[in-house]
């Protein structure tokens, strides 16, 4: 029952204006390598520890496979590899951030989860024109919080951009 309740809960979130307002400008931040990244809290369903991943063949390297989230089978993506960074051994700090965008529920493998930050819109600047690494195309903006820089990600691009465009979006789930 738990996971359907979870779903209901997020559904309500989607339609409850008041709730949306309290979620506005809130970001969940996490570490990958030396940088701190953030995604809008609105998409986040839950955070779970690393668990056994079943590999799925024919997937791009950053799709590590599927996990069993209390009876629901969801794919997981290693964000490091998505950014073309070197794979790192998973340890007890490794987290899976379960996010949902439209009908896709997916787990994001990150080095570690930090906290939830409030970054108002005027503290967010557009992504730099030139930036090192492959993560640039997933960046929505650069947020400033307490003089620290957080890289805010565009979840939609992170999930579906280019390399995955060839994936047929069949409605099997």
């Amino acid at each position: 029952m738990t996971d359907s309740q979870d779903k209901d809960f997020t559904d309500e979130d989607l339609y409850d204006d008041e709730f949306e307002d309290t979620q506005k400008d809130k970001y969940l931040t996490f570490d990958i390598g030396k940088s701190v990244y953030g995604i809008e809290i609105y998409y986040v369903i839950e955070i779970v520890g690393i668990q056994k991943i079943t590999e799925v063949p024919d997937m791009p390297d950053f799709v590590k496979g599927v996990i069993n989230l209390r009876g629901q089978v969801i794919p997981v993506m290693d964000v490091r590899i998505r950014f073309r960074m070197k794979q790192r051994e998973y340890d007890d700090r490794t987290c899976v951030i379960v996010v949902r965008n439209d009908d896709t529920t997916i787990g994001l493998l990150v080095d570690t989860v930090k906290d939830v930050l409030d970054i108002p819109e005027n503290d967010v600047s557009p992504p730099p024109k030139v930036s090192e690494g492959n993560s640039r195309r997933f960046i929505k903006g650069i947020g400033k919080s307490n003089d620290e820089v957080k890289i805010l990600l565009d979840l939609n691009k992170l999930l579906f951009d280019e390399t995955l465009d060839s994936l047929p979006n069949s409605s099997q789930s």
Partner: peptide, 13 residues
């Protein structure tokens, strides 16, 4: 269970 659509393109599964 159906394969999640995100990974449904796997062949032979």
């Amino acid at each position: 269970k159906g394969m999640p659509s995100y990974v449904a393109s796997a062949r032979g599964i």
